[in-house]
Design a protein around this nucleic acid. Structure first.
Lengths: 265, 265
DNA sequence: AAGTGGTCTAGACCACGGA
DNA sequence: CCGTGGTCTAGACCACTTC
């Protein structure tokens, strides 16, 4: 009898996977069920996408979020730590939890793997040569998950390290998200931070395919190198926080003094 | 035996950061203090290095490990999950926790980023051309953290994908750890699994530097390609579980039909 | 001193896989 | 059926930062 009473008390209080739980905004029954902490992760990500918290802003503390989502503080913590390990959030003891900014040497560098031989990583400057609008080619449309005749904005840049051209880049952006870019007067060197602050599009993951190529006449003109010299061609698809492709870029990189660096574990 | 010794060092049931804790083998006072779960991570890693559990073997369950290390089950769980995310362990619900094996498509692939264009990842076969012993050059000694005149074992291989040579590799291994390799009759295609099972050396992290190069006469002979064609040269340093460099390799890869793939997040 | 995230513990129940 | 890891909660204390 005591056992029964105890059980009924527990189930009203806050049981794990109680039926009441399914009335909660967070929980779903059946096959599509996700653990609560994953649901919290998704909710928080969605709220960032919706700009409830902007990059650099501080989130409420764990207990406030816990009561908002109707879960315990420990579950919120697990979700926040998971988002921290995927670089969406930054946590600082004694301070708070912040939406990561793609700025400085922490967040940005990891997507700039081209290093001068024997040197420390350094962010190159960029010289913007043109901004145009085109109809996406088949390859570009596929990479950006666009329809056949969708428009894209095309940027052509040269990147400069130590007063020397090192990379020639062609960048394709979906017109539907980036059309305001055409009116922009000053497109900065650090595009990913610019995307984040001006278009609310944060680069979350990238996929680089690397090939070796010979310098064409165009490369010679762009990079001031000899015809037929070997170059690294890096083809990149960048995905946003909600896993939609947001940038397609082809970078042709001098390889005589620079190398592409990867660390895996 | 180790278990008994370890248990004898463990002080009684302990509160968090109690003074008694500092008598525990796991805890250290002062500046070098590490959280308990990190200490458990290090201990478990060390025990794997010492072969208390071999690759593929199952560890004791969380409660047994907890009592052995004198911490709570939750702390052990945090340590085991962390080691799982760094690919040292593999956990399967309902089964147990295992030391990761560098085999099959799960553990091995992540270190083979060369993909046929438009194809799915596939492990290449290898043709071993020579095994020799040399004195390490300055560059090799530096990469492998060896003394000036230490010896290294040098393997030269060609790798084959779909009946075609795609990579020419030169591999340098510290003689002190790999000397038994000289007596080996059958060196298999999958070296990292071989290192793990025969030499108790598990590749944990790699660092690849990628450059574009022109095919030399040697490349022409090795890969059956045209002189002056562009190649990817991948220079790799592989580190073991205890972060010591264990392999230095230079791979010259055909780039006409293959590309090197990186995903970052 | 107050507030934050970080660590640690304890205990409950669930889901999976094998006997 | 049992044992495993997975999820969730609750509550304690520690360490860092700012005021």
């Amino acid at each position: 009898m005591q056992l029964i009473l105890l059980l009924s008390f527990v189930s009203t209080n806050l049981p794990y996977m109680n039926e009441n739980r399914f009335d909660n905004k967070l929980s779903r029954p059946g096959l599509a069920f996700q653990p609560l902490y994953k649901q919290v992760e998704e909710q928080v990500t969605q709220l960032i996408v919706e700009q409830r918290w902007k990059p650099g802003e501080m989130l409420p503390n764990e207990f406030q979020l816990a009561s908002e989502f109707g879960v315990s503080q420990g579950t919120v913590r697990k979700a926040l730590n998971s988002l921290t390990s995927s670089k969406v959030l930054t946590r600082r003891q004694g301070i708070g939890t912040f939406v990561s900014e793609h700025t400085g040497h922490h967040g940005l560098y990891r997507f700039y793997p081209l290093i001068g031989d024997g040197k420390n990583p350094e962010l190159p400057k960029a010289e913007l040569l043109s901004i145009t609008t085109e109809t996406a080619s088949k390859k570009v449309a596929e990479a950006l998950a666009l329809k056949a005749k969708d428009k894209v904005i095309v940027l052509i840049r040269r990147r400069i390290l130590e007063d020397e051209f090192c990379i020639a880049e062609t960048i394709y952006l979906p017109y539907k998200w980036f059309k305001a870019l055409l009116d922009e007067k000053d497109v900065p060197h650090t595009l990913y931070h610019f995307y984040q602050t001006n278009f609310n599009l944060t680069v979350h993951t990238i996929r680089d395919s690397i090939k070796a190529e010979l310098a064409t006449q165009n490369d010679v003109d762009m990079l001031n190198i000899g015809l037929g010299e070997p170059l690294l061609e890096v083809t990149r698809i960048a995905q946003s926080l909600n896993d939609k492709p947001m940038e397609y870029r082809i970078s042709r990189c001098r390889s005589d003094k620079y190398h592409y660096l990867v660390e895996l574990n």
